[in-house]
Design a protein around this nucleic acid. Sequence first.
DNA 1: GTCTATACTTAGATAGAC
DNA 2: GTCTATCTAAGTATAGAC
Lengths: 206, 206
Amino acid sequence: MKDTHDGSRKKVNTKQKIIESAIIMFSEYGYYRVSTRDIANAVHIKSASLYSHFASKDDILTSIYDLYKEKMGKVLPDLDELYKLAETAPPFEVLTKTNFFFEPEDQEIMDRVVTIAAVESRTDKRSEEFLKECIFSLPINFTAKLLERMLELGRIEPLDIDAFVVLLANFCFSAAIRNFTVDPITMEDWMKGTSLLYQMVKPTGK
Amino acid sequence: MKDTHDGSRKKVNTKQKIIESAIIMFSEYGYYRVSTRDIANAVHIKSASLYSHFASKDDILTSIYDLYKEKMGKVLPDLDELYKLAETAPPFEVLTKTNFFFEPEDQEIMDRVVTIAAVESRTDKRSEEFLKECIFSLPINFTAKLLERMLELGRIEPLDIDAFVVLLANFCFSAAIRNFTVDPITMEDWMKGTSLLYQMVKPTGK
DNA sequence: GTCTATACTTAGATAGAC
DNA sequence: GTCTATCTAAGTATAGAC
């Protein structure tokens, strides 16, 4: 504010700061209530300056989803490792490992991205696709593949994998949409819920 | 359009038509995406004419919630009758009776109102209050009172009523928010879910 | 990259004739 | 009650100086 020449040292990550502020505000107030001026104010620049970093307000939302995908890619468990694990470890343990978490400093902000997508998905195609892809299909396929493998190996008793996996996805979706509302699901209830579901997968003892 | 004098005969319910169109569009595209011009177009008037019926766009939303409350008041089961029923009928049957339904021609539109409230409640105080009041508190109190009565009468085994009623409310909320999405809950699943919950209430056989 | 200034568009709302 | 015309405010976005 006072010395502009000093600013150049700190502006390394204006783009990052814009994305983070946008995530927080979109998740809190909704995409439409938040103007580009609001976002600009939050990062102490003028709204015109946003356009040095993003082509449009819409582009900010796209970048938010891209960021999520990028971060998700880094923490997704390795399928081959889990295949190995499936050969010896208890099925319950294998399934637990499919629950991926972000780096602790990223977790909250990534949860907020899911919340934005959950709300906007009602009226926005891209948000709907992001939600389906990242929150439904991907984790579902992941779990389904492991269950199939364990079934092949004779490590679990016969199970309707499709039905199981739909139950699981809906539980995750409910949890996501409740985030940052008056009545969010607690970590404890989350664990209880997934545990209960995982117990439907019966080990053969083999 | 051609003969204006004829219009006066049909304009009996412009206000009603505005509300209904607004409900459909708000639930489909979200409150912010729908402009007063959109609503006006849908009922074939100019947007300025809306203001003969409503003070503001916000007032339309208020009227929508008021309409829901009014309709709900007409179909809510009579608590005293249910108290009577609780003395003789099986607990399961009593609980089933607390599920209220609107007149068939109103049901879909009222479901849409809940959807609007569920989405807007994230960012709008009044929507949040409507949702809590009509979708959470009221049905919960209703069921809780009946359970208390049946407990007093010794017709059901001891039960954590508060916990039960929270489970029930959350199930209803999930169902409501999924309405008009890619993945709405089916009537069958709805019945299955409530049945399963109601089975947690064990009759004493008295 | 950020600023000021400004263009363009759309939205909500009002005034006044009919 | 509905219309035309219009106002005002706000939002997205661009141009061009620094």
